[in-house]
Amino acid sequence: MRRFAICIFLVVAVIGLNSSCAEDQNFNQIEDISIVPTLATSIFYFESDEEFINDSSAGQFYTQLFTFEAFNQDFVADRILDGFISYQLENTTSKELEIQIEFLDENDNTLDSETFIIEPAPAPLLQRQIAYGDGGRSLDILKNTTNIRVSGQNLGDNNSISSLSEPKIILRSSAEFRLRLQ
């Protein structure tokens, strides 16, 4: 009886072990996994009230150069695929204004620029999307940008005041880009 029980167990064990199986696996697939998130963030915000514009001498009322190294960081520059920068311009002043954004390399050479001319209030919201990468402007512009210069030009007079409450020129911007993490 004892031997019989042992035999039964061994037979069951052998059958069990031999009948265990594994569906075909391909662990090399891990190399093919694609992780491409789309990341979005604001870039910069520019605002000036009409009084400041009027107080400035005619023509350019403001210019500011500042470092901007969001895109040339290795983590971003090595992974960025494509995307776009969105601009939104709102003018509630009484004058036509020009806002220019320049993307500069480390030697302050202009790599790219974007100029906005917006009519006096009541001007519609000016919105623009600039694509980079596939089908758009070169990604190298962004990868090599280390400085940005923002300039404001008054194309109107220096004394009128809009009847709107708190008249201002506002530039909003954001970036939305795809990055290949894997």
Partner: peptide
């Protein structure tokens, strides 16, 4: 909380330098 670089005039006039990103 971050909404990017902000330049608000006239408050920031003369107060900003080129290192505002950093």
């Amino acid at each position: 909380t971050n909404e990017g670089i902000e330049i608000i005039l006239p408050d920031d006039f003369g107060n900003l330098n080129d290192e505002i990103w950093q």
